[in-house]
Design a protein around this nucleic acid. Structure first.
Lengths: 244, 244
DNA sequence: TCGCGTCAAAAGATATATCATTTGAAAAAA
DNA sequence: TTTTTTCAAATGATATATCTTTTGACGCGA
C-alpha cells in the first residue's frame, strides 16, 4: 500500500519525467512540475499542497518546497496571501501583456542571435520543423509544444552571451497553462508556415524579416487563438479580485 | 558571544533591513539578500554558504536555502556545477545583453503604462525625482539607487495588467553587483536630466518621446558607465570559463 | 436565521538530525 | 620531487520533528 493513511489523494496527476542520475530530488521535482505547467497539464486554480505532493511523489516535503519556491519566483506559480500556492488563473489583460512580452523578448533574442547563426544551425532548426510536421500528423500535441520551444530556443541560444532566454522561458511558463487548449486551435493553421518564414529570413540573414516572422509566429500562434479561448471560457476575472 | 565556535565568520557583511512582522523568516532573508545584491554590497564571485549565512543571521539553514534558491531562479545568483552558490561574475558581452534587455523591457513597460498615467502619478514621480536630487547632494548613493528604481517602477506599475515588472526587477538584480561602482560615475552627469525628459514626455502623453527618454536614461546611466567600469576592471572573462 | 467566538485539524514555516557529495590536505607511491 | 591515494572535515541535500498560522466546522447567543 502506498497510502499514507490520511486519504488525501491529490486531485491532479503530474506526468512523470525521466530522472537523470546526477539530478537532485529538488531538481527532479522542479523539472517535473515545470514540465506539467508548460504543457498545461495542471488546471489553473489548482492548489498545490506541499505534504500532498510529497506523499504523491514519495519523498519528503523539503525538496517539494524548494521546487515550489523556485517556480513561484519565476511567476509560474502564485503565492496567495494566506501562503497557499496555486496554479495562476489569468486575466485577458494579463494574457495580452504576456503575448506582447513574448514578442518584445523574442524579437530581441532573434535579432541578437542572427550574427551567430550558422548553416548548421539552420539545418538543425529545419529538422526540428520537420519533426513538428510529424507530430502534427500523429496528433502528438505535447511533443509539438516541446519541439516548438526547442525550435525557438535553438535560435536564441546561438548567441552565447544572451541573457534573455531565462526570461523567455519564464513567459512561456506563464502561458503554459493555456498551451493545451490553444495548441488544438492552432495546430493545422498557421504555426508551420511561419516557421518556414523564419527559416527563410535566417538563410537570407535578414534581421528585419526575421523579427517580423518571429512576431507573426507568436501573434498567429498563441496570440490569436488565445483571445478566442479566453473569450470562450469567459476568463475575464478582475485583476484585483481575491482568488479563492 | 555570538560565535558558534566554528570560527568561520563570513567574509562579507550584508546590510540589515527592517523586518515587518508579517514577514516569514525566509522572506526576510530573501529581501535582505536581494537588497544587498541590488545595491552591489556583495562582491561578484563571493561564495554564499548556507550554514555560514544561517549562523551569521542567527537562524536555521532552511529559510536560507529557500532564499538562495529563489534568487538563483531569478538569475541573481549562480549555481555552480559543484552545487556551490556564488554572486555571479559578469562578462562584458553579458553586460551589454542585459542593458539591451533593460531597454527592450522598459520601453515596453513605459509604452503600455502610458494610457494609465494620471497627473497624480506624474506628481509622485516628480517628488521621487526631487528626493533623488537631495540624495545626490548628500552623497547617499544607496538611497539614490533605491529612489531611481522607485521612480521607474512607479511608472511601469501604473498598468495593473502588466507582467513585465518582475522581469525588469530580475534584470536590475543581475546588474546590481555593478550598481555601487557605476553610481559614482553617473551621479552628477546625466541621470537627473533624463528624468526630466521622462516627466515631460509623460505630461505630453507622448509615447514616442517617452520611449526615447527611457532608452536614453538607461543608455546614459548604466550603459555608458558600465562599459567604462568593465573595461577598467578588465572584466573580459570568457563566458564558458570555469568560475573560481 | 445570522453572525460570532472556540477549537481542533490541516497546512505552511522553521529547526534539527542525518545522509551524500565535495574538497583539500596529508600520506603513500612513483 | 611529483603524482596518486586516502580520508576526514566542510558543505550541500534530504528527512524528520516541532512550531505557527490558517481553515472550517461546531456551538452559542443575538
Amino acid at each position: 500500500m502506498t497510502s499514507t493513511g490520511n486519504g488525501t489523494e491529490p486531485a491532479f496527476s503530474i506526468p512523470d519525467i525521466p530522472r537523470h542520475h546526477h539530478m537532485t530530488i529538488h531538481e527532479y521535482v522542479y523539472f517535473r512540475l515545470r514540465n506539467a505547467l508548460m504543457l498545461g497539464a495542471v488546471k489553473p486554480g489548482t492548489s498545490l499542497k506541499i505534504r500532498a505532493l510529497a506523499a504523491y511523489m514519495g519523498i519528503s516535503p523539503t525538496p517539494i518546497r524548494e521546487a515550489l519556491r523556485r517556480l513561484s519566483s519565476e511567476n509560474a506559480l502564485e503565492v496567495l496571501g494566506n501562503r497557499r500556492i496555486i496554479v495562476p488563473r489569468i486575466t485577458a489583460g494579463k494574457f495580452e501583456e504576456l503575448v506582447l512580452l513574448r514578442i518584445c523578448l523574442e524579437r530581441l533574442a532573434a535579432r541578437r542571435a542572427l550574427p551567430y547563426v550558422s548553416d548548421i544551425l539552420i539545418r538543425d532548426m529545419s529538422v526540428l520543423d520537420d519533426r513538428m510536421d510529424e507530430a502534427v500528423a500523429r496528433g502528438q500535441y505535447d511533443l509539438l509544444t516541446v519541439l516548438n520551444q526547442s525550435f525557438h530556443e535553438r535560435l536564441y541560444t546561438a548567441n552565447h552571451h544572451q541573457a534573455v532566454m531565462p526570461q523567455i522561458q519564464s513567459v512561456w511558463l506563464q502561458l503554459g497553462p493555456f498551451q493545451r487548449q490553444l495548441i488544438r486551435t492552432v495546430m493545422d493553421t498557421y504555426q508551420i508556415d511561419r516557421h518556414k518564414e523564419i527559416l527563410s529570413a535566417l538563410s537570407a540573414r535578414d534581421p528585419q524579416a526575421l523579427q517580423t516572422a518571429i512576431e507573426a509566429d507568436i501573434r498567429d500562434g498563441i496570440g490569436q487563438a488565445g483571445k478566442k479561448v479566453l473569450a470562450d471560457e469567459g476568463v475575464v476575472v478582475p485583476c484585483t479580485g481575491k482568488i479563492s
